[in-house]
Nucleic acid binder design. Structure first.
Lengths: 160, 160
DNA sequence: TCGATTCTGACTATCTTTGACCAACACAGT
DNA sequence: ACTGTGTTGGTCAAAGATAGTCAGAATCGA
């Protein structure tokens, strides 16, 4: 018998394959549909719809809340998971970040204006806080990762 | 199923988009129109029409009372200069930064993609370091200023 | 059997909506 | 002018509506 998580996973992927690059759902409704605890939905999202898998999750609480799952492009030399895991990792210097940004601009993954903004974001001037350089490099890595995720988020994967 | 607040927000924005820079309304009438508590109107104004969002609210009680919503109209360079030199200051929260960024995107000073990148850069996830919130807000302020300065430079380089 | 994976439930965080009570303003009567 | 009354809008705290987290129980697979 198929696992619950697998059922939920394929259910969501079916929704996503129907010509849609994103799908919005209600956590409680989905949980009720599958007769499981709402937190089960979070488990599925956390284990099968990660960034490395090529998905970005957005959500909102409160009345009219939702969970949105967006499928992003996850192939080619500028693959997100590659950039984040291999190129950026848990820490990155300003120089390395600058090179990476330059390459992305050159490959036209981002515009030169976006590149300027990203360089400004991770510049030494921004990171002027009294913590070890190590921590600044970790901070810069998270900043880069989040910005690249935003770029990927704009770059939807076509179904198929 | 749209949120009531969202409906009210878009209703007001529709009124404002018709070449109008300001709109005047009666709180009780609007509340009755949407079948909600009058204070719901205040909630919408407080959460979606703040100064950082680019709106000024004026109102008057008593007979003939009203609520006036004025959209701030400033040129891109003016707005950037104000944000960089006055509004951001030495510290800014994620929420405040998000509003400023959203406003710039709406005024087409930056693209929505650039807005997404900037939001990612100053997100709480980026700022996940073991320092007081105060310091994160200061870091965020420097990041914002640097990014906006980059945008201002671009505008100066090729206006239009 | 044992570690990894899956699932659940209690508790938490966030966003929205409402209602009771408060404050300000206009106007009519004095 | 002064005061009383009705007409607005403002505030705030509580209730309602969602989603998130995390530790531990249950289950699976080697």
């Amino acid at each position: 018998m198929m696992r619950l998580s697998d059922s939920i996973e394929s259910f969501i992927k079916t929704l996503l394959s129907q010509d849609e690059t994103e799908v919005e759902l209600k956590r409680n409704e989905l949980a009720e549909y599958f007769g499981c605890a709402p937190s089960q939905i979070n488990y599925v999202l956390a284990t099968r719809f990660t960034l490395d898998d090529g998905y970005v999750i957005e959500s909102r609480r409160g009345g009219g809340g939702y969970i949105r799952i967006v499928r992003v492009v996850e192939s080619g030399p500028q693959r997100l998971s590659y950039l984040i895991n291999e190129r950026i990792g848990s820490a990155i210097t300003e120089e390395e970040a600058g090179r990476l940004i330059g390459q992305l601009a050159e490959q036209q993954v981002i515009t030169s204006q976006e590149a300027d903004i990203m360089r400004a974001a991770v510049s030494g001037q921004t990171m002027a806080i009294p913590v070890p350089d190590q921590m600044k490099d970790a901070l810069r890595a998270r900043c880069m990762r989040n910005m690249l995720t935003a770029v990927a988020r704009q770059n939807r994967a076509q179904p198929g």
